[in-house]
Design a protein around this nucleic acid. Structure first.
Length: 417
RNA sequence: GUGGAUGUAGCUCAGUUGGUUAGAGCGCUAGUUUGUGGCACUAGAGGCCGUGGGUUCGAGUCCCAUCUUCCACCCCA
C-alpha cells in the first residue's frame, strides 16, 4: 500500500465541512474589513524566500522543500505566504492601486520539519496583508480583525501578546547592547543558547532552562532601545488597542522567526494547546528588499489545522452539522426508476439536495441507506404510484406519511413546509 | 537534526512461557417469505500481524535495521 507522505493529512468528508464553515466565517469577516482574496503559486523561485524570509532563518536554512526543475531552475514550495504575495504585489504593479491595498489568502504551506502536535509538513494558513500604510492605525485594525476571528468562532483562552522589535536602526543598536550583556556569561548558558548567540540572540531571552533564565536577569530589553519614531508608533498602537477594549500583554521576548518583521509584532497563543495559532507583524522593509518601491506593510497568518482543533474543542455542543439530503426517492421497478431519475434531476435543478439509489439496492436497503445518510424525507415510487400519480412521502424523523402528487411543485411544497 | 513511545481487519482493540487454518466489538454487504429505516437475529466480505533481514524444527510473539504515527527539544502558524 502506498501511504501519504510523512507530515501530510487527508481532510476527509466528515471533517471538511468544518473547514468550509471556518473558512467561510473568516473570509466574511475579512471581506467586511475590505480584504480581497489573492492566490499565488504553490512554488516560487527559491531566491524569493532566501531574500524575503531571510537566509539565516531556520525556515530557509533547514525547512524548505527545494528542488531543481527539469529546466535547471531552483524551485521551492512556499513555506509561508507573505513573500509570494509581496512578489505578486510588486510584479503586478499593485503599488499603483489606491492605498491601502488589502489582500487575504487561504493556502497550503510546506515545511520540512519533524511532526508533532499542531505541526505538519503540509499545513494551511489563512492570512491577511495590508500594503501602503505606515500608520499605527493599520496595526491596530489588523490586530482587531485577528482578534475578532476568535470571537466569531467562539474560541476562548486565547492570549494576545504584542511587542515592537523596532526598525533596522534601533534593532542594530539593541542587538549590540544585548550581545555585550550576554557575552559576559555566554559560556554558562545551555548549549542551544550558545548556538543562538550569533544567529538569533533575542531568542536566548525566551529560553526555558532555569540557569539561562537566571543569567537573563537584567538583560536589556528591546523596548528601551526603540528610536523616537518606533517608540511613538508602539505607544499609539497600545493606546488605541486599550481604547478598543482589546486585551493584550506586552511580551518583549516575542521575536518571530522570519527576518522581515519590523516594529509591531504580535501572536495569539492558545493557553490550552500551548502553541501560537496566529502570528504576524509589520514588515516595512520587505517590499523594497524584494526590489519594489519602499512600501510599508503588515500582515498575519493563522494555522488552519490549529484553529480547527481548538474550534472543535469548544464547539462540541453547538457543532455545526454537515449538510444532509432533504429528500431520498426510493423506487421499485424500471418505470419507477426512470421517473425517480427525472424527478431527482428536476429537484436538484431547484437547488435541493435530493438522492436516489444508483446501486440497484432493494427497496428495504434503499430505506436503510436513506436512514444512514440522514435524509429528512423519503418518497416511495412504484407501479401503483405512477398509475395514480400519487406517492407516500415519509418524514424520517417522525415516521409520519403524507400523500403527495408526483410533481416537482407538490413535492417541493411538502418538503419545504 | 536530537530524544522517547508506537504499529494486528475501515475503526477501537484481544492474541496466553514462540506451537496447527489470527480473533472480538463497531462499521460495511446481504438476508430474516414476496413494496418501508432506526431494534433484534443470521450469514458474508475484509488481515503477507508496518516493511526487510535474522534466530528457531516452528515467529503476530524474540533480535537487528528501516519506515509510519504520536510526543518533546529546536523552530514556527
Amino acid at each position: 500500500m502506498i501511504q501519504k507522505p510523512k507530515g501530510t493529512k487527508d481532510i476527509l468528508p466528515e471533517e471538511s465541512y468544518k473547514w468550509q464553515y471556518i473558512e467561510k466565517k473568516i473570509q466574511e469577516l475579512f471581506k467586511n474589513y475590505g480584504y480581497k482574496e489573492i492566490r499565488v503559486p504553490v512554488f516560487e523561485n527559491t531566491e524569493l524566500f532566501q531574500r524575503g524570509v531571510g537566509d539565516t532563518t531556520d525556515v530557509v536554512q533547514k525547512e524548505m522543500y527545494t528542488f531543481d526543475d527539469k529546466g535547471g531552475r531552483s524551485i521551492t514550495l512556499r513555506p509561508e505566504g507573505t513573500a509570494g504575495i509581496v512578489r505578486a504585489y510588486i510584479e503586478n504593479g499593485m503599488a499603483s492601486m489606491p492605498s491601502p491595498v488589502k489582500m487575504f489568502y487561504n493556502m497550503a504551506m510546506y515545511r520540512y520539519e519533524n511532526v508533532q502536535k499542531g505541526r505538519l509538513r503540509e499545513f494551511h494558513q489563512i492570512g491577511a496583508e495590508v500594503f501602503g500604510t505606515s500608520s499605527y492605525m493599520a496595526d491596530v485594525e489588523s490586530i482587531t480583525m485577528a482578534n475578532e476571528i476568535f470571537n466569531i468562532l467562539n474560541i476562548p483562552n486565547i492570549e494576545l501578546t504584542i511587542n515592537s522589535i523596532g526598525c533596522p536602526t534601533c534593532r542594530a543598536e539593541y542587538q549590540k547592547a544585548l550581545k555585550t550583556f550576554l557575552q559576559k556569561n555566554i559560556d554558562k548558558y545551555c548549549y542551544t543558547c550558545q548556538t543562538r548567540f550569533d544567529k538569533n540572540p533575542m531568542r536566548i531571552l525566551d529560553c526555558k532552562e532555569e540557569k539561562c533564565k537566571e543569567l537573563n536577569q537584567g538583560a536589556p530589553i528591546i523596548l528601551d532601545y526603540l528610536c523616537e519614531e518606533c517608540k511613538t508608533h508602539f505607544e499609539n498602537v497600545k493606546k488605541l488597542l486599550t481604547e478598543l477594549g482589546i486585551e493584550y500583554k506586552v511580551d518583549p521576548r516575542i521575536v518571530r522567526g522570519l527576518d522581515y518583521y519590523t516594529k509591531t509584532v504580535f501572536e495569539f497563543i492558545s493557553k490550552d494547546e500551548g502553541y501560537t495559532v496566529l502570528g504576524g507583524g509589520r514588515y516595512d522593509g520587505l517590499v523594497k528588499e524584494l526590489d519594489g518601491q519602499e512600501t510599508p506593510a503588515l500582515g498575519f497568518a493563522l494555522g488552519m489545522e490549529r484553529i480547527v482543533e481548538i474550534y472543535e474543542k469548544y464547539n462540541k455542543e453547538n457543532m455545526i452539522k454537515p449538510e444532509v439530503p432533504k429528500l431520498y426517492i426510493a423506487e421499485i421497478g424500471e418505470k419507477a426508476n426512470n421517473l425517480a431519475t427525472i424527478l431527482v434531476k428536476k429537484l436538484r435543478e431547484k437547488g435541493l439536495n435530493v438522492q436516489k439509489d444508483i446501486t440497484e439496492k432493494s427497496i428495504k436497503a434503499q430505506f436503510k441507506y436513506a436512514d444512514k445518510i440522514k435524509a429528512e424525507y423519503v418518497l416511495t415510487i412504484g407501479e401503483d404510484e405512477i398509475n395514480n400519480n400519487k406517492a407516500k412521502l415519509k418524514n424520517m424523523e417522525t415516521g409520519e406519511e403524507t400523500e403527495v402528487e408526483l410533481t416537482v411543485e407538490d413535492i417541493c411544497g411538502h418538503i419545504n413546509e
